[in-house]
Design a binder for these strands. Structure first.
Lengths: 206, 206
DNA sequence: GTCTATAGCCAGATAGAC
DNA sequence: GTCTATCTGGCTATAGAC
């Protein structure tokens, strides 16, 4: 029991990776267990010995993606540590980080797409996603807006929702829906305008 | 050629209606031509005589939905006529109208879901949607923001994008992703905060 | 645990009578 | 144009050898 005795989780991981590729590309219904098996380099029967059904395999990969992708993106400590930062700086950094993700990680775009696509058939997955990403980001930013000494916003929570929602919607139109040419707008203008609106509505007189 | 001689478009319409129900509920891949035929009360062969393939039927119904649902929702005249209205009034009316749609028309939620769901397989449909709804709304609101005498916004176009994007994202989280309990926020707070942010950043001194 | 082989089913699409 | 009946193929899932 010295080195690689991780219980044959090799195959399990290979299955999960193949399943991610297949589900993200094809969607749930069009994804084929044969192709997943082929991509993963295992037999179909092996998949069914690890995951009882196509449903459970799908749930497993989305759960994994939800929980893994953003473990440290917006940890509450991140914001608590920067409570005294000027809003311009913190908001610009946050927005840039969010907008960087779909550019650097195309898999993220497919992930967003499939969470929305399968939200009718798998509403639990959609809700898990909401709890693990937007709800956490929202709480962190609301906390900052509430306690930052440079701001006195009338409704910090709604303001956080607007800030994050406008950026998320920008990601959906530009990347998920291939709308960069149809709704052209640079990231800089989006960010600058958001920051201007927030500071204008809540800057402390000093 | 007096009364009902509309060339047998009766069956064609029945097929389209059945197809809308089936595609919106199941998604493209899981939708079954047998069920569509059954719902429409025709045989499968009749469907294939009107539409050559499942692809073309799907494109036909989404095109129809895109073009029909919002013919008059935000016609450019609507905004031009109200150029002198105070921003609070026009923006509140616009936001209320947008947020009313998914509440009164559940089919709209399924429509949004499927446009996003199939954007990888049918990017043209996603782009048609963007051109026919968000792009038009954006242009109208940008025009208002640019010419309304009560406002002097630094970037009217980006401001319009943020306003419409925040509302669209609210619809996605609350209705498409079943997140009303996870991300609670009343429409009133969303609207009030948006209006406050915009007027604060662009109210003319007078 | 992992494989090969296959059961059993349902899909999209078509042929041919009317 | 519309139907019934059917073809062909891929799908999920499993049985049984190793």
């Amino acid at each position: 029991m010295t080195a690689a005795s991780s219980c044959s989780s090799d195959k399990r991981d290979a299955i999960l990776e193949g399943a991610i590729a297949e589900f993200l590309k094809q969607g749930y219904a069009a994804a084929s267990m044969d192709r997943i098996a082929s991509t993963a380099g295992v037999s179909k029967a092996t998949i069914y010995s690890h995951f009882q059904s196509k449903d459970r395999l799908f749930i497993a990969i989305v759960d994994r993606l939800v929980l893994s992708k953003f473990a440290d993106l917006l940890a509450p400590e991140q914001v608590t540590q920067h409570l005294n930062d000027p809003p311009e700086q913190l908001l610009r950094h946050l927005a840039s980080t969010m907008l960087q993700v779909p550019r650097q990680d195309p898999e993220y775009v497919g992930f967003i797409r499939i969470v929305i696509a399968e939200s009718e058939r798998f509403p639990d997955l959609a809700q898990t996603f909401l709890r693990e990403l937007p709800a956490i980001a929202l709480e962190s930013l609301s906390h900052y807006f509430t306690h930052c000494p440079h701001l006195a916003l009338p409704d910090p929570e709604a303001t956080a929702r607007i800030f994050l929602g406008a950026i998320a919607h920008y990601i959906i139109t530009q990347y998920v829906l291939y709308g960069a040419d149809i709704l052209p707008l640079t990231e800089t203008r989006l960010i600058d305008t958001l920051i201007a609106m927030i500071t204008a509505s809540g800057a402390k007189p000093l």
